[in-house]
């Protein structure tokens, strides 16, 4: 066994032990209410959507771009799944959601790549457009009914624990392989590391950016399908409130970036998703009011974690 593999296995072992100890601690703090047969499925079913969105965001961040319109894309992709799902069953749930998610993020990256507008500025504008379009669909007399009718319960198995965990496993394998074991994944990371060097080494920057759009869109599209299948309907957002939909995935990616020095980011994402939702779940069990107070606790946790993760590091945690 190579020294590198051994080191990775030891790191993984230590991390699993720490994670298990943390979850046990949560159980003790909650008076035995955290690790119960009722609560564990709740926790697990809530980590899938943010994990997929976080994988999508990690591809965006890896190439040095950001996209604030992801929440708006999720809503529109979920609308597509909802409309076509009620008409065509599972095919209608899965395919249109993924297509719309992929297409919209792909459009975003075309705009980033060819207009050279800073991505955070362009994506805020796009978020407003997507929100407005969602609002139009919800208020327009010919589409209103299609959008507000919840997805038929017969087609919502994807949101159930078993299928969604299978999807999580498939998503994890895909994300890991693409990020670490494909030319496109390595090129995406090269662009984020140093665009000029990447260009000089023959990496086609614009083509790679479009691939980022496709890959991130694919994960975000799947996330939209999972979220719709879980909740049955998604509420239209306006006034840039769709951005709040990515706060939790964003926290997951930030946490995964802190852990990145020791654990590959694609592996860290589902783990961080579990950690973040477990914190929310524990706070709920402890009757901490949801919303601002829980989010403040999450913020404090992230800062503490970043400080711990930053030790002995000469760089800066983003």
């Amino acid at each position: 066994m190579g020294s590198n593999t051994k080191k990775n296995l030891i790191t993984a072992g230590v991390f699993i032990v720490c994670l298990a100890a943390g979850l046990l601690l949560f159980n003790i703090v909650s008076g035995g209410k955290f690790l119960t047969a009722d609560n564990i499925p709740v926790v697990l079913s809530h980590i899938v959507y943010p994990a997929f969105t976080a994988w999508g965001l990690s591809f965006l961040f890896a190439c040095g771009y950001t996209d604030m319109s992801v929440g708006g894309v999720v809503v529109l992709a979920a609308f597509a799944s909802n409309i076509f799902g009620n008409k065509f069953g599972y095919i209608g749930v899965i395919i249109p959601g993924i297509i719309v998610g992929t297409l919209l993020i792909f459009i975003n990256f075309n705009i980033f790549a060819y207009t050279k507008i800073p991505s955070w500025i362009a994506s805020i504008s796009l978020a407003m457009i997507y929100e407005a379009f969602g609002f139009f669909l919800k208020t327009n007399s010919s589409t209103k009914q299609l959008v507000i009718t919840p997805l038929n319960r017969d087609y919502r198995a994807i949101g159930q624990l078993g299928p969604s965990l299978i999807l999580l496993a498939v998503g994890f394998i895909l994300a890991y392989i693409i990020y670490n074991r494909t030319t496109i994944g390595l090129n995406i990371r090269a662009i984020g590391g140093n665009k000029e060097v990447a260009k000089a080494m023959g990496v086609n920057v614009n083509k790679t950016l479009l691939w980022v759009g496709v890959l991130a869109g694919l994960f975000i599209g799947v996330a939209a399908v999972i979220q719709l299948s879980y909740s049955g309907t998604l509420t239209v957002k306006t006034g840039l409130t769709s951005m709040s939909m990515i706060f939790q995935p964003l926290a997951i990616v930030l946490l995964a970036q802190i852990l990145q020095k020791r654990i590959n980011i694609t592996i860290a994402i589902p783990i961080c998703s579990l950690i973040i939702y477990s914190i929310f779940n524990l706070l709920t069990i402890l009757h901490v009011p949801s919303g601002t107070l829980q989010e403040a606790c999450l913020g404090a946790f992230l800062i503490i974690f970043a400080i711990i993760g930053q030790r002995k590091s000469k760089g800066v945690v983003k």
Binding site: L186, R189, A190, N194, V197, A198, M201
Partner: peptide
């Protein structure tokens, strides 16, 4: 120009030719 700091040294050697 240098190397891409976010990639491992080995990948940097073959960056652009990983195919």
């Amino acid at each position: 120009l240098g190397v891409v700091s976010s990639l491992p040294a080995g990948v940097n050697v073959y960056l652009g030719r990983t195919k």
